[in-house]
Design a protein around this nucleic acid. Structure first.
Lengths: 353, 353
DNA sequence: CTGAAAGCGCTTACAG
DNA sequence: CTGAAAGCGCTTACAG
């Protein structure tokens, strides 16, 4: 029987493409049983499972994701919906999601968005309705939008939100505790003896901005200090607004001796504003940022800032998304606490290091 | 006839999900004809097309991508395969691709990779074989790898490469002309009167590194200068290597008065090295970077650098991928020429601005 | 220019 | 624990 055992009868795949039918035939079971093995159904006898798995391995078969997606009525895509303006934040988050997606057969698809776009909700609805992704991950600030979450629920699309405060059930949420980060920044500056301390927070639209500020006020209060309205400004988490807000603050008749800015990008802006006015960091003004982006260790002097493990955050959000309630219960409360990184942009008021 | 015209007979979609069958019934044609309209086949009478389109519009029908992917034997995904270490580069490229993908029904999926990984080729092969993406876009340096391109051809996966030199047919390539960028940097420094000029190039693995260096040498030659081996270093396109290489150069008995570094990241490293040795930029040493990342306008003094329109590059690569030979011919040669951005980190040798 | 049949490669729902 | 039938929503190949 010359090559009689190879690709007999049923095989239609001329191109060597192995399908579930080939596996079924080779393992002497129905394709439904192969399907059960693929999907880890417990309803398969152990020796049957082993036999099928052996054939799968030997033939190098991988189930066609397009066919599965059609039959499952759901694709193997995980969407990342984001509006964060920081490239470093975005890339780190992507990496974290990708880490957790590895070997799961899922793909990461990008869905940047813009909260000021009136079509935002329609776009998101269209995306999840058409693509039927396995789920989506929402990062700040879009993650704090209740309308978006509501649409996802309507469309029956699983999601996990990354946010600074409790905005959802714990199995749909990874918390960043920005409140604690702000408090650390305040404690650091206050313990260095500063009393006239300014704050440039992010847009009110971002809960993170609100949280960082609230935590900052709480930290100051521990030292008997309060955040003065005249020493508070609202920036847009951008370099330019950082420059402008810092410029205003440093031009006051009685300027602050320290400034905490809501993110590194704005803090670098403060560096430039200080320099433009001939002020030295940290001799004349202490500066604290937030995020610990690479830029914080590129500027001179190296910036004191608050670090948040964005990549880990992305990984955890993804495992939560794919694992669901079950994973959340098994894992318990996951905490991503911000950490103060003290470098060279802050020093004690009286001049000591 | 109470609600007799609504959803009669054939409709199985309980959930209001409209399918090609509904459209066919409503428009009084076969589903094949609807399919032709969806796919812009010319084999449809104009009035038939209009009638079908009207029904599609009225019903809000969008064809199911999963079903189309299965029937087409190809998904509506565009992969971005990249190994570039710069977040800003990556994010800009993604944006450019996303720009061009908008309203085409295609999704962007991320495939980061690592050239030092021995499984690289297998991973890429597995990805394109399993997912059957509509195509992939390769960015430097992975775009310069002939083995990867060969695998893509074997697997019959369309691709477009972004590279600094001609590595492929013009309909599969978007050129960045890094050679010209290097030349501009050289002309700038030489015309400022510098003669003792150093260069820190990127890894030899990157053609871009080679091209920038070659262009730089050519530019110097126009002024009768040559790049001295003792003033040349190889970095890894990272901040740390920038610091180290610049430190070495600035420590020479007869140090250079200007340095051109292969990217902004390393150039910022040179800022730090200079500062650590008490040297001022540009008074004591002129510095030129490459890429014009946001960091170039965040550091102090603002950095002179070479700009390349990464986002546009990504968009063009995508249109080329989706449009193919036809688009390439219609569009003609597309040029992305680097542009020198003169800021404050360079000045003439005799002290003039 | 149009359509009926078969098929893409899986899974669901139903039986046994 | 296992399987035969029907179906997911499209397109291809073939007729007319």
């Amino acid at each position: 029987m010359p090559n009689g055992t190879e690709k007999p009868g049923l095989t239609r795949s001329v191109e060597g493409k192995v399908t579930i039918n080939d596996i079924a035939r080779l393992a002497n079971v129905s394709k439904k049983t192969v399907s059960r093995v693929i999907n880890n159904s417990p309803l398969v006898r152990e020796d049957t499972r082993r036999r099928v798995q052996a054939v799968i391995k030997r033939s190098g078969f991988t189930p066609d994701p397009r066919a599965r997606a059609l039959a499952f009525r759901r694709s193997f895509l995980v969407g990342m919906i984001y509006d964060n303006p920081s490239p470093q934040y975005v890339v780190n988050m992507q990496r974290g999601i990708l880490d957790a997606l590895e070997d799961t057969g899922h793909l990461l698809v990008l869905q940047p968005c813009d909260r000021s776009n009136p079509d935002l909700l329609d776009q998101i609805r269209a995306f999840v309705r058409e693509q039927k992704p396995k789920g989506v991950i929402l990062t700040p600030s879009i993650s704090e939008d209740e309308e978006v979450a509501e649409i996802l629920r309507q469309e029956d699309c699983p999601y996990v939100r990354i946010a600074s405060v409790a905005v959802d059930d714990s199995d749909k949420l990874v918390r960043t505790h920005d409140h604690d980060g702000g408090r650390e920044a305040a404690r650091h500056l206050a313990s260095l003896g500063h009393t006239r301390i300014a704050h440039v927070h992010g847009p009110e639209l971002f809960r993170s901005a609100h949280e960082r500020r609230r935590g900052f006020e709480e930290g100051l209060a521990e030292f008997g200090l309060t955040l003065l309205p005249e020493l508070t400004r609202e920036g847009a988490y951008t370099f330019d607004t950082g420059v402008e807000c810092a410029r205003e603050l440093l031009s006051l008749d009685n300027p602050p001796t320290a400034i905490f800015l809501g993110n590194d990008e704005m803090a670098v802006g403060a560096y430039h504003a200080a320099r433009a006015q001939g002020l030295r960091i940290p001799e004349d003004i202490s500066v604290v940022g937030y995020d610990d982006t690479p830029m914080a260790s590129r500027v001179w002097p190296l910036m004191t800032t608050v670090r948040i493990a964005i990549r880990d955050l992305g990984g955890e959000a993804t495992r939560l998304l794919l694992g669901g309630r079950e994973y959340a219960d098994a894992k318990g409360e996951v905490d991503f606490s911000p950490e103060l990184i003290v470098r060279a942009s802050t020093r004690s008021l009286n001049g000591a290091a």
